[in-house]
Structures are given as structure tokens and as C-alpha cells.
């Protein structure tokens, strides 16, 4: 499977937000725990809306959560 051209810091941000679980983040964003896991592992590219929602949960701008890694 081709790797996504961006990385993310969701796992770290969850840890820094009181060890928030994938399930808790999923509940707040409106997706399943498995979808959060897939995004974290770089297996699934979320929609712009979900990406923004994740960033808003951590009170961070989008580019501090997702970073472009391709060329």
C-alpha cells in the first residue's frame, strides 16, 4: 500500500492532552476509534473536515497536527 504523503502527531497530542484515548478522540471528532487508529498509523487519509476537527480538539492549527512529508 502506498504511504500517505503526510505524517501526523495525533498520538503525541493525545498523550499530551491527558492521555486521551483513540475512542475519546473519535467521539469528539465524530468517527470510530478504528478510524482514528487508521489515521494515526498513516493508513487512511481523513477528509479536510475531520482533519480540522481533530486539530480543533487539540486547539492547534492544522499544520501542527498534519505535516506534509512528500515532495
Amino acid at each position: 500500500m502506498p504511504r500517505l504523503p503526510f505524517d501526523n502527531d495525533i498520538k503525541t497530542l493525545r498523550f499530551l492532552s491527558g492521555e486521551m484515548t483513540q475512542g475519546d478522540l473519535g467521539d469528539r471528532v465524530g468517527v470510530t476509534r478504528q478510524t482514528i487508529a487508521a489515521i494515526e498509523q498513516g493508513k487512511y487519509s481523513p477528509s479536510l473536515e475531520v482533519a480540522f476537527r481533530i486539530a480543533r480538539v487539540f486547539d492547534k492549527p492544522l499544520e501542527e497536527v498534519f505535516r506534509w512529508a512528500g515532495d
Binding site: G30, V31, T32, Q34, T35, A38, P46, S47, V50
Partner: peptide, 11 residues
Amino acid sequence: KEANLKEDERE
């Protein structure tokens, strides 16, 4: 809880 969840975008 999972059974009552709506399909998300990945699903």
C-alpha cells in the same frame, strides 16, 4: 455503543 454509531467517512 459501537452498534449505535453511524457509519463514519472511512466506513
